[in-house]
Nucleic acid binder design. Structure first.
Lengths: 216, 216
DNA sequence: TAGATTGTTAATCGATTAACAATC
DNA sequence: TAGATTGTTAATCGATTAACAATC
């Protein structure tokens, strides 16, 4: 059982990246790797890698390094990717449907068990072998199937009310794609925000910083 | 002209969020705000806000605070949102089409001028008043229209080759949705990665940390 | 003017890096 | 064993917070 109290957010945010790189190595049949080699690959310092991993336990062996397959598995375990958190998706517009189709929920610890929308034109459509249900039926569904997490692909202006409602139905984990900053208002909830608009603006900043006013 | 040397990445990543909150205030007809009030709203410290803003210039007024409309405009200017960086999108699958339709490029400093795919089933489709072109025509297009940025909604295994090719065609800014870590291999490029898979795993970690093994 | 609030410097806190003893 | 590389402690670096003089 890994030690885990007080692991910093920066370390946590690096875990999926470690997992990806180790997966790549695994596919290339690399069996062992040292922190120095992995550091070079990932453009980190060897120190940081050893520090990061030791937040959760000593997975390496002195003089040898790390076993790629074992470490890959350990990190999956730390993140809980073996779980099947029952999850619903709200908002089956362009973005919602794409997320439903594009993501590999099973290999990331989730199980998508329902898709909801309030638009009559969208209700009844099939997405990923699932029929989009009416948001009006959400309460009954939650009482029957107890989803723990919700993916919010809904407009900004309904995000707050929607999340509040979900909290009252026992759903308190949100993967939030709306432009609304959920975390600010929901202290008790677990929120992972995906702000695509922010990312695009950050991208713009970087271009603007590198090529100031060139084509303004 | 704002001072700008050596602004840290953490500050830059907060800019879009400031911009969003100021926009919200503007829509509510709030004309002035103090760093203390804004801090409460955004769940930051007043100190941090003043520090952040002063990286770019003194936009406030002692004893008064900040003029919401002016500050909003200043931040837009800092990020370069008035620009029209000519941009192409590669990969018109589910994700690519959704990004093309969903994002407001114009208000974020970009102009989408072309969409490309290599799948004959996708080529010729219309997305956002644009006909998806054959990737084979990319070189000619670049020579004619000189896009500076590319949105990569392509599979992981072609990301490296594709980016390399684009660099040779003068495109060196990438908004990367592929699961490949572009930044690692392209020192000269400007890369903004969007790793949805990583985000989902981070979400999983947080749930797993809060509710350990409950439903494993 | 007095009160409020900024801009900025100094203090604190946390994260990253370096170093090295432990050990495979 | 000798060489390599970890786990871990100490040093450094950077980012956040606190404090306060400047000033509207």
């Amino acid at each position: 059982m890994p030690k885990r109290e007080g692991v910093s957010l920066s370390v946590i945010k690096r875990l999926p990246r470690y997992y990806r790189f180790l997966g790549d190595l695994l596919r290339k049949d690399v069996t062992r790797i040292s922190s120095r080699e992995l550091a070079q690959l990932m453009q980190l310092t060897a120190s940081q890698i050893r520090q990061d991993l030791n937040c959760f336990g000593g997975f390496g062996q002195q003089g040898y390094g790390y076993n790629v397959a074992a470490l890959h598995k350990e990190i999956a375990n730390i993140m809980g990717l073996h779980r099947h958190t029952p999850t619903i998706l709200l908002g089956a517009g362009n973005l919602g449907r794409t997320i439903a189709r594009h993501m590999n929920f099973e290999s990331s610890g989730f199980e998508l068990i329902g898709i909801f929308d309030s638009d009559p034109n969208v209700i009844g459509q099939t997405v990923r072998d699932m029929v989009v249900a009416d948001s009006a039926s959400l309460e009954k569904f939650c009482q029957a199937h107890h989803p723990r997490a919700a993916i919010l692909c809904i407009p900004k202006d309904v995000a707050y009310e929607c999340a509040k409602n979900l909290m009252s139905l026992g759903v308190n984990c949100f993967w939030n794609f709306s432009h609304y900053d959920l975390a600010v208002d929901f202290e008790g909830a677990i929120v992972e925000n995906v702000h695509l608009g922010d990312s695009l603006m950050t991208f713009c900043y970087q271009i603007n910083a590198a090529y100031p006013e060139e084509e303004a």
